[in-house]
Amino acid sequence: MLKLQNLSKTYGKGSVKAVDNVSLEIRPGEIFGFLGPNGAGKTTTIKMIVGLLKPDSGKIYLDNIDVWENPMEAKSRISFVPDTPEVYDKLKGIEYLNFIADIYGIPKDIRQERIEKYLDIFELRNAVGDIIGSYSHGMKQKLVLISALIHDPKLFILDEPMVGLDPKSSFHLKEIMRERCNEGKIVFFSTHVLEVAEKLCDRIAIINKGKIVALGTMDELRRYSEEKESLENIFLELTANE
């Protein structure tokens, strides 16, 4: 279970509240969609969960482990795919994957099995011996995805994962997400693509100006909105400027 408790983060001497007292509970086996307009606080929240931004206040627990108190334990259960895939340009794809596998302590046979499986799914088998600097944006994105799956994480966090992926890879990624949930793991992702969220997510939270403005299943969200049709309408209504 992933639990965010009264999470807050401000920037610029406290003048900008990026995340304002956010609390969420995400259960094992859930695909959780995190929606919001640009600058709403999605990436800030995600960065606090994965250990990249220290919260000003509030707690984050994964399986009752305080993520900021016991970072080693927490990080070994989490994997993170950022919105821009910045990876070591001078390493070969396979060297990067071996590096990540070493850090998570994955034995040779298991790493080979998992890496080969995902290389085939994302059609990267023929490029993985090249240095990452020669990859396109989408290929880097796929490499980061594979590296995030090597250790079979309990919590799989993705920031805008569909950006830059071709339709086939997006399809496979959605399947992988679903598979992971069936195994009782958590998938937490932010997106702008409302269709994806609508079709894929078990529950959705909409964040606006740092606050959660809606939370629930698609059916529950429809109750927030007058037009009760698509997620797009709900989203536009809830995030409209007052």
Partner: peptide, 8 residues
């Protein structure tokens, strides 16, 4: 660039 078993 194709991955080989020895790459792991």
């Amino acid at each position: 660039a194709r991955v080989k078993s020895s790459d792991f």
